[in-house]
Amino acid sequence: MKEKEGKAMEKHSAGQENKLVEIVFSGDLDKALAAFVIATGAAAMGMDVVMFFTFWGTPLLRDKKKKVGGKDLMGKMFGAMLPKGVSKLKLSKMNMGGMGTAMMKSLMKKKNVASLEDMLALAAEMDVRIFICEMSMDLMGFKREEMIDYPNLTFCGVAKMLEEAQNSKVQFFI
């Protein structure tokens, strides 16, 4: 039994890379900020970083300047109700009809905390890879043409993310 466990452990630890895989499930400003701080921090520590955006995290990657037509009613509804890019996110708590979010943003500016727009650019600069969940996009009616231009962007499913997660030392779900 012990031997078996040992072997399983060995198999598990073999091929572990200095890599972080983050699943960004939330679409809230605070949680997205945490996700980007951790991702860029990990890249600074020399880690290979993958951010997998799924469900409420998916609209973060919409480009506010891009417009696409040809959506059905549900697609249009989701499109209108969900944030169009990182600049439109709200706090998960104390939003207070947008007032809390505005206050937090001005506080972030005052305290020199990087905005999500800056963090996204920084992530690109540091070779952080971004995966977008194809199923979430399909569910919410998002099209590839309306997503951001990002140097290392992959549209994929759960298997691609798991392949990366399997040989990574650290995994986060945010």
Partner: peptide, 15 residues
């Protein structure tokens, strides 16, 4: 100076 987390570490890793 004046930079909060994660910028000091990000900048120094580049610098």
């Amino acid at each position: 100076k004046g930079m909060p987390c994660p910028m000091p570490v990000v900048k120094v890793s580049k610098g």
